[in-house]
Amino acid sequence: MPHENRDDPAVRFERVTKRYGDRTVLDGLDLEVGRGEHVTLIGPSGSGKTTILRLLMTLERVTDGVIHVDGRPFSHMPGGTNGKLVPASERHLAAHRRRIGMVFQQFNLFPHMSVLENVVEAPVHVLGESREDADRRARDLLDLVGLGDRADARPTRLSGGQQQRVAIARALAMRPGILLLDEVTSALDPELVAEVLDVLRDVARSTDITLLCVTHEMGFARDVSDRILMFDRGRIVESGPADELLESPAHARTRAFLGRSGERGRPLR
């Protein structure tokens, strides 16, 4: 796939292969996301979209190939003889993954902490912010996601949409340069989807964060994405500006996929 070449893209996959046992999910994938770019991955179930995000979040390790973040090797580090790249140590990953945040389909809030504690946990214990500074910023972020008045509530008392908005605030509190969103509305009741997507549109518009989303919400994809990548079986079928790709997909696979997922405007499983 040709990409416009920028210096130091935020993310670069270089011939990345991921296998589970003898099942190859990604096979020599090349992928670039520019700084501040908003990219959405679409494609049928099992095509490897989540795998890409999980590799970036270091929840999985690459089988082969190298992931670069901000122009530096991320999945690997220089080592061994003559500076050859070797798989990154836990320490290397720990030092570099702070740049990246992730929001999960299932929210994964800490149920034994209040909403506010969820949001200040990482700024205080990872970034070393003072509790006061972290508190103040957490409250700003909770205002941003429309939950300023629920700071002291337990997450389990909140609706799914509210929980997901807390999860977004929690991720943003780490000031990530790159934010990964994996089907963040798929676990929500339909009537709660809009409030979460509105918050994300806001974030996309008002920050210079690099966004990498997986979604089945084509309307949202069109609104926030600079570019959409159509995936199938671990390969990029087609890539292009959001409007263009959604309006006039070049590839038959993309047409078929969009035709199907358009029926209900909701994900197909």
Binding site: F104, N108, E121
Partner: peptide, 15 residues
Amino acid sequence: VPKGQWEACTALSLP
């Protein structure tokens, strides 16, 4: 403790 809790910790870079 659900796997998602561990993953959230990784995503937040908690030591």
